[in-house]
Write a protein that binds this DNA or RNA. Structure first.
Lengths: 209, 209, 209, 209
DNA sequence: GATGAATGAGCCTTCATTCAT
DNA sequence: CATGAATGAAGGCTCATTCAT
């Protein structure tokens, strides 16, 4: 949510800076998906973004900055997917269910980006990594909150222990990190459904009650 | 199980080759854990292994070979952990339970190695990656088999769908990839216990029956 | 004539690229003459050219590219020598004579470069070699053409068989590849004269008729 | 003829040394023809010779030594071809003709070896190169001698100047260094015939008189 | 602010030669 | 004498970053 880390720029026009950075992050994401972070060069990214190398460095200080921008965007993206799914749902039990389903769906749709995150987070510099993990942490706690609210609304969640939010936000990542297997086993929506069911049972929810 | 990929060596003494390769893989793993694959240099690895750069290349042909050796060893390691846990257990339902618990424990104990695998598999060359994934696939199918046997022995597994083995072999990875969070939440064995419970419920197993 | 092979550059300014490449080729030629292609390092060449290694690679993609540039330049150089000698000569019989004499002279003057070509053409990559040989072939055919024109103009060339152009363009190479001997036998211009005479007689030309 | 350069060996049994060296030179020649001198490794040569690397170094001190042995053998080979052609010919004018024809034939048959010599002589160390050039020089002088004897026997050689022996021993090299062209122009024996004719006319010999 | 050429540190890999067994 | 593992010095090439224009 709140980007912890500040990237300093050569350019002073803040609006321009933000606009360009978003543009750079998107271009970089495309390149990273294609070649991975380590095989992507600054040149590649500049070309994809339609900028000169020199210009790029007016908005970003290091390659690490770019990776950070990409992480931030991607993390924000799936968080946004979940929030969007919650927009029209008010009943707490339904909200928890909707969030889980939305997250699962998001993981499958964004599997390429998610894989990138899980592969390259460790390549971030200390500071960047901390900022990204904080962002992820906030997302996990969002789920903890949803669980709490469902419970407060009377939902029986006998299976929801201290790790519940972590489990719920981790297992669906399988749709990305195990995509190489799932491809051959079953259609994606069936996989999503099975995961939803598994998580529900794991939390101890019987028939959505 | 059956290593698909063969690494050719300059040295002919097979015993020596195997011994040295194991040594190199261990040294490399230490370096990779410290700096990641891309930031680790062959020099680093040679020094850590107590070899000259030239000697290293008598046992390995490329840096990719080293990463492959590391992957293979680590994948074999947790598979071995599971097999060991099964050695004295014969009853199919107990075997499934034992395997799950052992795998979960292994993931926590080997969390550094597991993180390495999940971060760097994509850095493997095509052929190496295929070989490693085949090895992983075999491991997943081992669990599919255990589930099948438990079911054949009369165990009710209403939650075990086509993805059961994948889920069981993926969720515990959380103990590695989310180690940065768990550290602050609860002691490791409690986390293990919670995961075991979650998986059991997810599979639809009631109190171990 | 028409350079078959295209070298891609990192730098886009075409004028600069051409200028620098010419400069690099000359520097490289000096280094190659001194140490041979295989013993010359990119570092050597960069230093000789007054460039950094990195800069060098902005104009050239591989060491092979450099060798190709050198070959191309040198081949063009002696071809140009011959063309220049033909500029003011119109009578076909005189043109053939002028071309031969000019080529012989060029071989002696450029003996160091020619030796380089004959020693290192085989070190060129497949594509480069083909391009250079095509260039050489065009030069040989130029002589075939001159011979044809002389014959059409009524010159008796009883000795000019299918290999005539090859012979005429090969024998003078002796002034380069046997320079180690000629040095001790006779002055260069006398050697040139003897070769001219030999070729003339070989072609069956009597007293320049 | 007289090998100027002495190679010191680790092994004292002279007979064994000579035998092994001949063996090594032949194996090396095969490897060199296949990959060129610079791309051939000592390992390649040892394998081809059926020796261990260590053993090889008992008979030879450096890679340069090997190249020297190969040069010496190859140079001796075509010289021997010429001598053999002279064995049954006594008449001086016929001897000159036979020598030229034999040399031309040898150049075509041994074109791969000859190309190797012309490409790699410059890779020889100072001392080795001098020894090889001395050997070549002796061969050239053999031709000078044959020319002299033919002249003494009454042969008119108006075209034979100071370079005659050099020309006669150089032009036929064309069959090797221009093999890439001749392949497409005419059959090898026709090429040989044309060269014989050309040299004869060049020397001023009319119809073998 | 934009551009893109320049830079230099560093990496993977090869290989002739040595030497302990 | 034979073996073959060990070595270390290079070498070609890449690329993030800088900086003059």
């Amino acid at each position: 949510m709140t980007p912890t880390r500040v990237i300093t720029a050569q350019v002073s026009d803040t609006g321009l800076v933000n606009e360009r950075r978003a543009h750079i992050a998107q271009a970089a994401a495309r390149v990273f998906r294609r070649k991975g972070f380590h095989n992507a060069t600054i040149r590649d990214i500049a070309v994809e973004a339609g900028l000169s190398q020199g210009s790029l460095y007016n908005y970003v200080r290091t390659k690490d900055d770019i990776l950070y921008l990409v992480h931030q965007d991607m993390t924000a993206a799936y968080a946004r997917d979940v929030e969007r799914a919650l927009e029209d749902v008010t009943e707490p039990r339904a909200r928890l269910h909707a969030a889980i389903a939305a997250f699962i769906h998001s993981m499958r749709e964004r599997r390429a980006d998610i894989a990138l995150i899980y592969q390259e987070t460790h390549a971030l510099g200390e500071e960047s990594r901390r900022a990204v993990l904080a962002q992820t942490q906030a997302f996990i706690q969002r789920f903890a909150q949803l669980i709490e609210e469902a419970r407060a609304a009377g939902m029986a969640l006998p299976g929801a222990g201290p790790l519940a939010a972590d489990i719920v936000t981790f297992l669906p990542v399988m749709l990305s990190l195990r995509a190489w297997r799932l491809r051959d086993i079953m259609p994606g929506d069936a996989a999503e459904a099975e995961l939803v069911g598994f998580l529900m049972r794991g939390l101890g929810i019987q028939d959505g009650v």
